[in-house]
Every structure is written in C-alpha cells, then in structure tokens.
C-alpha cells in the first residue's frame, strides 16, 4: 500500500514538476479523444438515422381469399411473436382502398364513384410489418410465407440489403479510424513520457543503484501516464457536451423541416457511452504509452 501511495505521490509530483511535458501530453490525448468523441457522435447519429430508416422499411403480408377475421388476428399475433419484429399494423381492405384512391385520384369523388360501392381491393387486407434491424427481413419473409392463410409477402429486399451493407461499411470505417487514433495517441504519449524519463534519468539510475525493482521505478511513471490520460479525457468530454447540445439545438431550431428524417441521439444517450469509453481510452493510452517508454528505457540500462 505504501509503495502504491509513494508511486501516486511521486507520479503527481512528476506531473507538476514536468508541467510543460504534462500539458503537451494532456493536450495530445485531449485532441485525440476529442476527435474520437466527435467521430463517435457523428457515427452514432448517422447510425441512428439509418436505423430509423431501416425501421421504416416495412414488409406487407397479404392473406388468402375468403380468410376469416379471426384467422387474420391469429396471423397478426404469430407475426408479432417472431424475433426482431418491432410492429405489425393491420391494414383493412377498406383502409387500403381509401389510401390507394387518395393517392391515385387525389380524393376525387367522381372518379371513385366509377367503381360503385364495391371495394376493388376487397381481398387486399394486410399487415404492415416493421423490424428493428433490416437484416432480419431475409429470415422473416419465408417464416411468414409459411403461415397458414398467408398468400404473399412483399418486402423491399434491395433497400434492406443496401442499408445492411451501408451499416457494415460504417462499422468498418469507424473501427479503423478509432484504432488509428488510439495508435497515434499511444505513440504521442510514449514520446512525451520518454522525454520526461530522459529528464529524470539520473533519478532512475540512483534508484537502480539502491536496489529498486523495475516495477518500483515504473510505478510513478505509469500512474503519471494514467492521471494524464484521465485528465486528457475530461477536457474533450466537457467540450463535446457543450458543443453537442448547442449544435443539436441549432439544427432542431433552424432545420425543423428535416426533423422527421434526422433523428438525433440525445446528449444523455450519447454520453452514456462516450464517458466510460473516453475515460477507459484515456487511462489505457496513458498506461500503455508510459509503460512502453519506461520499459524501453529500463531495458537500455543495467
């Protein structure tokens, strides 16, 4: 405990003593985590928008001719019980005709009267089925087609495939950029701590002469790295939170027309993930960067 306490005190003193290096390292980590946060916010919101588009891509389930209302209700229940189904909305034959005629004839009663009182779409009652993830459509269609009383299932397969691929592409790009930023941060903190070590090499050599183990020498530097990493995480989090809320408010005020399409994540939703990720990344970058440079230096001396 005393060794850890000593390491912590020395680590904090080191940060203060080498405040220029510390500030440079904090700045570096902050910049990287700011980019990471910014990127995560963009990707997160983009995925959210895509997801909303996905859930608006529905499937239509049509019934056999002469099916009873009771059976239609049963089919509805069965569909709702399938995994991945978000909503199954019943469209009666009457509503289908009303919607169709409104769309085709713009509500022109004269044209509609040409059909008399009979509903030309009397066998077109259906379920509009919406899913959480567009990729499950492919599995759901054959399952629904097998249900007794189901005549046909229409699905927007091309749209579903396209969105699925787009989602995967976004995931690949985001992972690649995050890994790249992480590596750059580790390299930069490594360089910063290595400079700090060079300044303190006589101290390290004295410690080695009096019998300090590598772990004892390493501890203050590692703690220093972690503390710098955590401080480096706080700054971009605060900045991003302020920025995000302001940008969100600006878009919602000035582009309200797009509000149906642009469904943004709330600050709470975004930062619920971003806060732990940033702290872990900051501490991890600090730990890794400082450990690597101290290890390299210790290996170079006897």
């Amino acid at each position: 405990m005393s060794v850890i306490g000593y390491g912590f005190r020395q680590g904090m003193k080191n940060i203060w003593k080498n405040r220029l290096f510390s500030l440079a390292a904090i700045g570096t980590i902050s910049a990287c985590l700011f980019l990471l946060g910014l990127f995560y916010a963009l990707i997160g919101n983009f995925r959210n928008i895509v997801k909303n588009m996905e859930s608006s891509v529905g499937m239509t389930v049509f019934f056999d001719e002469g099916i009873t209302e009771e059976r239609m209700e049963q089919i509805g229940e069965q569909i709702r019980n399938f995994d991945g189904v978000k909503k199954a909305e019943f469209i009666s034959a009457q509503k289908a005709w009303q919607d169709f005629s409104r769309e085709m004839y713009g509500g022109d009663s004269e044209l509609m009267e040409a059909f008399g009182k009979e509903n030309p779409l009397k066998d077109s009652a259906s379920y509009e089925v919406y899913v959480d993830d567009v990729s499950v459509q492919k599995k759901l269609v054959p399952l629904m087609e097998q249900l007794d009383g189901v005549r046909k299932v229409n699905s927007a397969d091309t749209v579903a495939k396209g969105l699925g691929r787009f989602n995967l592409l976004i995931a690949y790009i985001s992972v690649s950029i995050i890994v790249l930023l992480f590596l750059v941060s580790v390299f930069l903190i490594n360089t910063s701590v290595a400079t700090g070590i060079r300044v303190r090499r006589s101290e390290i050599s004295i410690m080695k002469y009096i019998g300090a183990t590598d772990a004892f020498v390493r501890l203050p530097f590692v703690i220093e790295g972690i503390v710098i990493g955590v401080i480096g995480a706080v700054i971009p989090l605060v900045l991003l939170r302020i920025l995000y809320e302001r940008i969100l408010a600006f878009i919602l005020t000035h582009f309200s027309v797009l509000s149906e399409w642009l469904t943004f994540l709330s600050a709470g939703e975004l930062f619920r993930v971003l806060i732990p990720v940033s702290f872990l990344a900051g501490a991890g970058i600090g730990f890794l960067g400082s450990s690597l440079s101290v290890r390299k230096y210790l290996r170079s001396i006897r």
């Binding site: 003193k13 004295i206 410690m207 002469y209 019998g211």
Partner: peptide, 30 residues
C-alpha cells in the same frame, strides 16, 4: 539484480542526491 544490490551500499564522488527532495526523503528512498 535489484535484490542483490540491496546488500551493497554505494557512494559516488558526485554524491548523486535527488536535488528536489530533502535530506530525509533522500535517505528514506532507500
């Protein structure tokens, strides 16, 4: 090696004390 060196005390011509720590801290470090 560190455990071996603990059995040997060493003194140098140029003292090699830590300038940012007082006398007590320099000795307590060992």
């Amino acid at each position: 090696i560190p455990f071996y060196r603990r059995r040997i005390g060493v003194v140098f011509q140029e003292f090699r004390l830590l300038g940012d720590r007082n006398v007590f801290e320099n000795v307590a470090l060992a």
